[in-house]
Design a protein around this nucleic acid. Structure first.
Lengths: 247, 247
DNA sequence: GTCTCTTTGTGCAATCGTTCACAAGGACGT
DNA sequence: ACGTCCTTGTGAACGATTGCACAAAGAGAC
């Protein structure tokens, strides 16, 4: 990201005033707040919210300060008000129509995933390239053919596309989505997508996460396999604190 | 190699000599290298590898330098040799037995996911709490009951557990996995897991990714909706370069 | 052997993110 | 009204990561 904005004097070179790292944590706070609200809490301190979200309280305060001063010193944050403010900041006060392309195991799992509907996302269309599956009903939707993509995107005002196809089809589907007017794409295929400026792509790669786990697992195995005793303390220190509660 | 002689002068507080950010990119290089190998390339420059992996070349060189000096100046890296070195570093030269808990849509999708087997991961067991599903055959495996977890983990030497259950069951399943001896967990349930030191947990939350996309989508919508013209250039600059090819 | 050309490996500076530590602000009791 | 106590919001230190820019290293031509 070359950042052409050398004219800007100091900070605020980022497109948004909110750091990416903070944006990535807002959904965590949102989930934690929903839990607190259901438990009947009306206010929450940064400490309590931090515990519920699995981060530390300084981070919570700094993150929330980017949204504005919504807390009350000596008291904390109003749960409902904060829920609303974070939802608004994330754009979840409006409904987003999502199209899922690729109705394999993963596509169906996503179509059935309850976590979407409850967060302002509406699965508006399911598409596949296999004509033998077109017309098939899945969770109340009828599978459409990928050739109908443009039409479906227009009709349902789809702005987010999910790619759950094999990797060989991913770039083609991506191009079609962009051509149809979709400007945000969530890609589950293990492929590098190239898109024109202005289109956001986020990637979720299941095997990458496993590989990262394998790396740490191997390291732990190597440490505990140390024969002599001089490293027992080191092994404990290394395998200990840094890895705990990383969820 | 990592430590250039003399007593460790300063840094190296990290458990591993390899930065987390680098570890997270190694699987990307691995995939890109597989593609290059299949295309018949025997050597590759940091520039070419960077293009194939979707990062910049300086990052590739610095990342690879953490593994050792495996390149040849003026030529580049030997594809096969680099493939082996990265695989070894990630611990993929050995096979990892994975147990998947929760045979819902997502669990089945994961069981069927081809990307695991080709990377040294073997789905060794499928488990579920629903006794009516125990015994059911899925991709060559028989579903076992979660109460058999310890036994299965021992028999198959499982070291990585995947949680694909509803969020309410996640912590319980996690505790059982840890009790059975699993020390690496990949969690798909939208829940905060707490584990003892020495156990690694990584989380994949599908709805969080969508929420991050929604945030950027909303921002783009707000920018393009700017009525006057003084911000046209800004909007283009902001919506442009920084968001492209982020996959 | 020497020259040229290409590409690595890496110091260095800038950026980004995290954490500490505390002054400022507000509620509440008296 | 005043004092006490609690918690926010944030300046500043620190640490990690990125990207630049270039010297060093090796291959190949002649």
């Amino acid at each position: 990201m070359p950042d052409p904005g050398t004219a800007a004097p100091r900070v605020r070179a980022r497109a948004s005033g909110i750091p990416d790292a903070t944006v990535a944590r807002l959904p965590l706070y949102l989930r934690a707040l929903h839990g607190l609200a259901e438990a009947g809490r009306t206010t929450v301190s940064s400490d309590a919210l931090a515990a519920a979200a699995g981060v530390n309280s300084a981070k919570v305060r700094k993150d929330l300060s980017h949204l504005g001063s919504y807390g009350t010193r000596g008291v904390g944050y109003d749960v409902q008000y904060l829920l609303y403010q974070i939802s608004r900041e994330l754009g979840l006060t409006q409904d987003w129509a999502v199209a899922i392309v690729g109705i394999g195991n993963l596509g169906q799992a996503l179509a059935n995933y309850g976590g979407f509907a409850t967060r302002g996302f509406r699965v508006a269309a399911l598409l596949d390239a296999d004509r033998s599956r077109v017309g098939e009903p899945i969770v109340g939707l009828t599978v459409r053919h990928i050739d109908d993509l443009s039409e479906v995107v227009q009709a349902e005002s789809v702005s987010i596309g999910v790619i759950a196809t094999p990797d060989t089809a991913a770039q083609d589907v991506c191009d079609r989505l962009v051509a149809a007017g979709v400007t945000s794409i969530l890609n589950f295929a293990p492929a590098l997508l190239s898109v024109r400026a202005g289109v956001d792509v986020r990637k979720v790669d299941l095997s990458i996460e496993l590989q990262i786990l394998a790396f740490h697992e191997q390291r732990k195995a190597a440490l505990t396999a140390v024969p002599a005793g001089l490293d027992a303390e080191v092994a404990t220190a290394l395998a200990g604190l840094p890895t705990a509660v990383r969820a």
